[in-house]
């Protein structure tokens, strides 16, 4: 099999990919009704982004 082309993502893109995929999967596994799923996915995605960016900023003073 030939090698696949390398995928180059920024830190934020990789983080966003992770957050979207996990939120959607958790939403489908954890909720039944479509409306509940959408609410769960959006809330989970928001919290992922909030915590991820928050932790990133919190580590900024120690980055050098």
């Amino acid at each position: 099999m030939t090698a696949i082309p390398p995928l180059e993502l920024t830190h934020f893109q990789a983080f966003l990919l992770f957050a979207v995929v996990i939120s959607v999967t958790f939403g489908f596994l954890g909720r039944r009704r479509p409306k509940d799923r959408v609410k769960y996915i959006l809330w989970s995605l928001f919290l992922f982004l909030l915590v991820g960016i928050g932790v990133g900023w919190a580590m900024f003073p120690f980055s050098r």
Binding site: I4, A14, L17, T25, F28, L29
Partner: peptide, 22 residues
């Protein structure tokens, strides 16, 4: 079916992206 498709695509996408990123 919905859960099956989502799990299949999510795991497949993460595997493909992870391997593509070396």
């Amino acid at each position: 079916w919905g859960r099956a498709v989502v799990v299949f695509l999510a795991v497949g996408l993460l595997i493909f992206a992870g391997a593509s990123m070396k």
